[in-house]
């Protein structure tokens, strides 16, 4: 009298197990690819963990919600590559926790904005975007130039990032606070030390046009000027990494 369907329906344990199996499929499809992440992330030259000043800038970027209007993901579309440059690589966000790919472009993509403008321009544009771009809807952030950078959380930030896989060394964590202050101080004679510690593509200078102090503007502009500049595309093998 009973179909297989009915048997199953009336067997509590069996049915619960079936539900568990079906529900776990969703998780499986999300988690399984993480085990193959090694062969998703390209091998590239130049990619390095962010310096403490850049981490601070990134935190400000997230705090101010810049990601709500700006993406950091140049897609493999002609229009994107034409306008913003080489498409983004997985490797370029491997030290981002969380990544800033975004899904909304009220303003332009920022994945390769590093080096596109000068510090002076960034500072003045962030203070009042409409001075440079008529009709811009981007808010002004002039208070960043007034707010001294709080470097105390940086050691903790680096430790937290290390826990999720960013390879900071003990020495880098110990000197996080000084490193942040000195990256914005061209007179500290510290460029060599920072580059030895992080890599030759660290930019050391006064970013916010106020040489005598380090503000949140320094951190944010240092972060923006680094975006998209780390990977050495001359040594990038596109053939080997096509997907």
């Amino acid at each position: 009298m009973s179909t297989p369907h009915q048997k199953l329906e009336r067997n509590g344990m069996g049915f619960a197990l079936m539900i568990l199996f079906v529900a776990s499929l969703g998780g499986l499809f999300e988690i399984a690819p993480l085990f193959t992440i090694e062969n998703t992330v390209e091998e590239v030259e130049g990619m390095r963990p962010y310096t403490p000043l850049e981490v601070a800038g990134r935190d400000i970027y997230v705090r101010e919600g810049c990601y709500a209007c700006h993406s950091q993901m140049i897609r493999t579309l002609r229009s994107d590559v034409d306008r913003y440059g080489h498409y983004s690589l997985a490797a370029e966000s491997m030290y981002d926790h969380p990544h800033q790919w975004g899904s909304k472009r009220t303003g332009p993509d920022l994945a390769r904005v590093g080096g596109k403008y000068s510090d002076t321009w960034h500072v003045a544009h962030l203070q009042n975007p409409r001075d440079f771009v008529e009709g811009s809807v981007m808010p002004g952030y002039s208070f960043l130039s007034e707010t001294p950078l709080n470097t105390h959380p940086l050691e903790g930030s680096l430790i937290a990032l290390r826990r999720v896989g960013v390879p900071y060394t003990d020495a880098q964590i110990d000197t996080a606070m000084v490193d942040a202050l000195r990256q914005a101080d061209p007179f500290a004679n510290y460029e060599g030390d920072l580059q030895d510690s992080y890599g030759p593509n660290v930019q050391v200078r006064d970013f916010d046009g106020q040489p005598d102090r380090v503000t949140e503007m320094d951190a944010l502009v240092a972060y923006l000027q680094m975006l998209g500049t780390l990977v050495d595309f001359d040594s990038f093998d596109a053939e080997a990494n096509n997907r």
């Binding site: 493999t76 579309l77 002609r78 590559v81 034409d82 498409y87 596109a238 990494n241 096509n242 997907r243």
Partner: peptide, 9 residues
Amino acid sequence: SRDRVAEAV
């Protein structure tokens, strides 16, 4: 997709 965009460009 990467080859495709290289061709399109």
